[in-house]
């Protein structure tokens, strides 16, 4: 049993409050300034941080790790990956966008950057906040039904006697949900199809295969294994089905509807990053993207390579922001 030392406590308390004061001063002085940054001679002179907004093991994490591993040589520096997950990616996006725009903090981009703001989840305006660097992959959204479903073609959705069909999506506000809503609007199906928002793509696929719902919308890469195994039947794909589906699956465009919806993977920096650095990174990452081992990796994980350079990718994210804003307002999800 120990003896109490009142003066010991006092000393520790005094010490801690001193330290606390010092900490406050240091943090107050070291806040990142959001002004645009001067381009640096000889960039990059140290390692570059990459914020992955999703958990390790997923496609965003795996492809980013593979891409930057290839890029070490081309970009002439090492990369440090850090996973900051949560809020459908908003935590990681916010963290990378709040860092100093000097080219030393990048992030893995996903289409959610153009969506989350509409729901008031996080304040990200792609035009104001985001500088796209490169897009390296994309997968269009597609709609599929269980193998034993009476629905054989996309037209059956419109003519079926069942006028209340449920569609499993990966959560309200996710790309697969908004892709579905946009399709329903242009195809005049908004009164027949009901959004069943599951917690993630895996749960949505499970629900459709188990016959809990009449259909499912998800990314083409995620649907492909189940379409190939015959558990699901793809009815239409909402974009260019490069490398994902057999030719007989129609695109919405072929069916005569003007709607496309695509999930993307890419790299971005906070807005204000010097143009020279953006261009440098865009070029060396593109070189890494075209390397043999990265291409091989993408092939084994079932993802395609669709490239957009810095300007194209930046413009794409801005356009998508506007498009999805319209969908969200039209279906009355937010006032």
């Amino acid at each position: 049993m120990s003896v109490h030392h009142p003066d010991l406590h006092r000393r520790v308390l005094a010490g801690t409050s001193l330290a606390l004061g010092a900490a406050l001063i240091i943090t107050a002085c070291s806040g990142p300034d959001q002004q645009s940054v001067q381009a640096e001679e000889g960039f990059p002179s140290r390692s570059i941080d990459v914020v992955v907004p999703f958990a390790p093991g997923g496609s965003a994490d795996g492809t980013t790790r593979q891409l930057v591993a290839e890029a070490e040589e081309a970009c002439g520096t090492s990369f440090v990956i850090r996973n900051e997950t949560g809020g459908a990616g908003s935590v990681g996006f916010r963290s990378a966008l709040d860092s100093t725009p000097d080219g030393y903090t990048l992030g893995t981009a996903a289409i959610e950057m153009s969506i989350l703001e509409h729901f008031g989840i996080v304040d990200i305006l792609p035009e104001r906040d985001v500088q796209g660097i490169i897009q390296y992959s994309e997968q269009p959204v597609a709609i599929a039904v269980p193998a034993d479903s009476p629905l054989e073609t996309f037209e059956d959705l419109q003519t079926s006697e069942n006028d209340r069909m449920t569609v499993a999506t990966s959560g309200t506000g996710s790309i697969y949900h908004l892709g579905f809503e946009g399709m329903a609007l242009v195809a005049g199906l908004e009164d027949r199809l009901v959004n069943a928002p599951f917690d993630g793509t895996a749960s949505a696929l499970q629900a459709a295969m188990g016959g809990q719902t009449d259909a499912v919308t998800a990314g083409a890469a995620e649907l492909r294994p189940f379409v190939e195994s015959g558990d699901l039947r793809a009815l239409a794909v909402f974009g260019d089905p490069v490398d994902y589906f057999p030719e007989e699956v129609p695109t919405l465009e072929e069916l005569g509807y003007d709607w496309d919806s695509t999930a993307v993977l890419g790299i971005y920096a906070p807005a204000g990053t010097p143009d020279e650095h953006v261009e440098f990174l865009s070029d060396c990452l593109d070189e890494a993207r075209q390397s043999e081992s990265f291409s091989e990796y993408m092939e084994t994980t079932g993802l395609n390579q669709v490239h957009r350079d810095a300007q194209e990718f930046d413009a794409f994210l801005d356009e998508e922001y506007d498009r999805y804003g319209e969908v969200v307002r039209e279906i009355g999800l937010v006032e």
Partner: peptide, 13 residues
């Protein structure tokens, strides 16, 4: 109580 407060503050700092 003082020890408890001290360790808590210490951990927060």
């Amino acid at each position: 109580r003082r020890t408890a407060a001290a360790i808590l503050i210490l951990t927060v700092v």
